[in-house]
Design a protein around this nucleic acid. Structure first.
Length: 433
RNA sequence: GGAGGGAUGGCAGAGCGGUUGAAUGCAACGGUCUUGAAAACCGUCGAACUGAUUAUCGGUUCCGAGAGUUCGAAUCUCUCUCCCUCCGCCA
């Protein structure tokens, strides 16, 4: 949530910043809401002050021996009148506050100065490329062909169970995904992250906190019961909300969390996009990193968090590039974002496998997550960051396609061999069909 | 699922419907003392919102949440949420 003080004092600064991400701030609407809010608020508060004064006088009289009835009678008329006025004003004042907050919640975050300008998603800056796309001296297969070839990836059955955009993994391929997940977790834990296990169902408040709601409810799976509960679209939601409505001491910052979870996304806006294979699924596994920091730590934390995600790709030894998103392409809550894109031989393209974002105090304001240096020190907003490290489903694809052999088998990356107990996935994995 | 108990400031813990935004203790912060530290002593010490004459001075709201009674509610009534204890059931 954008700081309303900031909005009042420097509205054009905010408007300019938001225009960089192609969002037009409705200045007139805000000013109109503000005027209404101010008017009803001030009027209400004045009356409340009056009422409090009367009550105090009655109290004094009673204390000094005036019988209760007589004391009350002296002010009866005034107080009845004031109370009815207050009641009326209360409604309008409440309505103004609510409208204002509802509107504030729909404003995206402002891009950081270091986020480049741009008018489309193609205006990102390529920061670095690691490794070179492999060349194959045989006709290469994509992950679907490879997976089906070894009878480890079954889309037809998934359709029967759940519909499109789901997959059933079997045998060694299912195992590879699990090993990948465990290994990533282990790497991050060794790098100082605290492992967390979280609920996969959250209340709408948590989603408002991280910014998925109120604007993007179409992307979420909502439960019928309990109503207003949702499946998490990413572990970022429970992880970031860990500090909601709380004030923590600064010596516990930065906090670095890692969590593996399934992610559930309706993909409502992406009909027909990436329908082939398991690139874009309603349900996928992801290892997520979340940091809670102070304002000073925030920006440099993004560099560190992104490096932690890159580390995984480097250890897996797959070609990838690091991209700095332009303002236009920024997510709702982000001020600055690095995407990591892995080389997918099956598509001959780099595809997003991680997105690491710095959100400033935007999410913290929504969820009231704050810190202070000691018990009576001033209270400050926490700054939040999140990043995938990595999207496991896509990592599985990347490994399969980059490590494929002529016979349809897949070489296991060095770092996974011990856990897998082999160095190769064979093209015909004996699974009862 | 049944029975009971509870929710107050960073924490612990008081609080006859009327200077209670809230005693007291701890913690924290400033100071005195000390070569320094500790101890002791003195002082300060909740949050959100908001107005104006905006490094200042006011006001409003907040004692789990919401509604109600009242001139006035932390205190009374109702509903809800969460926590604890016991019993039952269960992975």
């Amino acid at each position: 949530m954008i700081d309303i003080q900031q909005l009042r004092r420097n509205m054009d600064v905010v408007a300019t910043a938001l225009s960089r991400r192609n969002f037009t701030l409705d200045v007139e609407y805000f000013e109109q809401l503000e005027a209404q809010r101010k008017e009803s608020d001030v009027a209400k508060q004045k009356l409340q002050a009056k009422r409090n004064a009367i009550s105090r006088k009655i109290g004094d009289l009673i204390k000094h021996g005036t019988p209760v009835d007589i004391a009350k009678a002296q002010f009866q008329e005034d107080s009845t009148q004031i109370n009815s006025q207050i009641n009326a004003l209360n409604d309008t004042a409440d309505r103004c506050q609510q409208t204002l907050r509802a509107w504030l919640l729909t404003l995206p975050n402002t891009p950081l100065a270091s986020t480049p300008d741009g008018d489309s998603e193609n205006d990102h800056h390529i920061i670095a490329e690691h490794g070179t796309p492999p060349t194959f001296d045989f006709p290469l297969l994509d992950h679907v062909q490879l997976g089906e070839g070894m009878q480890g990836m079954d889309f037809a059955r998934a359709v029967k169970l759940s519909g499109t955009r789901y997959v059933v993994l079997q045998g060694e391929l299912a195992r590879l995904q699990r090993v990948l997940t465990q290994w990533m977790l282990q790497e991050h834990i060794q790098n100082g992250y605290q492992e967390v296990y979280v609920p996969y169902i959250v209340k709408s408040d948590a989603l408002v906190g991280t910014g998925q709601l109120p604007k993007f409810s179409d992307d979420l799976f909502r439960l019928d019961s309990p109503a207003e509960n949702y499946l998490i679209p990413t572990a970022e939601v429970p992880l970031t909300n860990l500090l909601r409505e709380q004030i923590v001491l600064s010596d516990s910052l930065p906090r670095k969390y890692v969590c593996h979870s399934p992610c559930f996304r309706s993909e409502a806006g992406s009909y027909g996009r990436d329908t082939h294979g398991m690139l874009r699924q309603h349900q996928f596994e992801k290892v997520e990193l979340v940091w809670h920091t102070t304002a000073e730590q925030g920006e440099s934390a993004l560099e560190k968090l992104t490096l932690d995600a890159e580390n995984i790709l480097q250890l897996l030894d797959v070609p990838y590039r690091k991209v700095l998103l332009c303002a236009y392409d920024l997510g709702f809550a982000a001020r600055k974002t690095y995407d990591l894109e892995v080389w997918m031989p099956g598509q001959e393209k780099y595809r997003e496998i991680s997105s690491c974002s710095y959100c400033g105090d935007f999410q913290a304001r929504r969820m009231k997550a704050r810190w202070r240096s000691h018990a009576n020190a001033p209270i400050e907003w926490i700054h939040t960051l999140n990043g995938s490290a990595l999207a496991v489903g896509r990592t599985l694809i990347a490994v399969m396609e980059n490590y494929q052999n002529k016979d349809g088998s897949i070489t296991i990356p060095e770092v996974l061999r011990t856990a897998m107990g082999s160095d190769r996935l064979h093209s015909i994995d004996k699974v009862d069909n």
